[in-house]
């Protein structure tokens, strides 16, 4: 074979082999680490899986934040004003976390309906609302405003 052709063939083979191997691993890893977002209404309706990590977002209900004595475990309710989900989290809450403020938590939903959060996110400043929370609240307000709902 012509040396330049041979060289090109090698280059192409390296690229094809490398990229297909990479694509396999990437898709595999991606599949295992996708966390789907759910609103409280969907969780209460039983639409969320309990066997994989998911995200839940909404407002922290007023008066719902309770701290267990002698530990760092907290309970609070995330609401979209149509449904409520009880969340349990052990650890330090972010600075911007507060009642009547938006939050997104990542973790597992238990069979009993309590959401065990491994991570709690709160907005970075006063004027900022996570878009997913805003959308969740909006759709919940719309559906609850509908008569007979």
């Amino acid at each position: 074979m012509h040396p330049i052709r041979k060289q090109r063939l090698i280059v192409v083979l390296i690229i094809v082999a490398g990229s297909s191997l990479a694509a396999f691993f990437i898709i595999n890893a991606l599949q295992q680490n996708l966390n789907l977002f759910y609103e409280p209404s969907k969780i209460v309706n039983g639409e969320a899986p309990t066997d994989r990590q998911i995200r839940l977002g909404g407002m922290v209900a007023e008066g719902s934040l309770k701290r267990q004595a002698n530990s760092l475990t907290v309970n609070f309710i995330i609401t979209d004003f149509a449904a409520n989900v009880v969340v349990e989290y052990t650890g330090i809450l972010p600075d911007m976390f507060a009642e009547n403020a938006g939050t997104v938590v990542t973790g597992f939903l238990s069979e009993s309906g309590i959401f065990f959060a491994g991570q709690v996110l709160a907005k970075h400043d006063e004027n900022y609302m996570p878009p997913e929370v805003a959308a969740a609240l909006e759709s919940a307000t719309l559906s609850s405003a509908r008569p007979g709902n």
Partner: peptide
């Protein structure tokens, strides 16, 4: 659907 990709994905790669 609204997904997020967790850090384990990036670390694994």
């Amino acid at each position: 659907g609204s997904y997020s990709v967790g850090a384990p994905y990036f670390n694994a790669m």
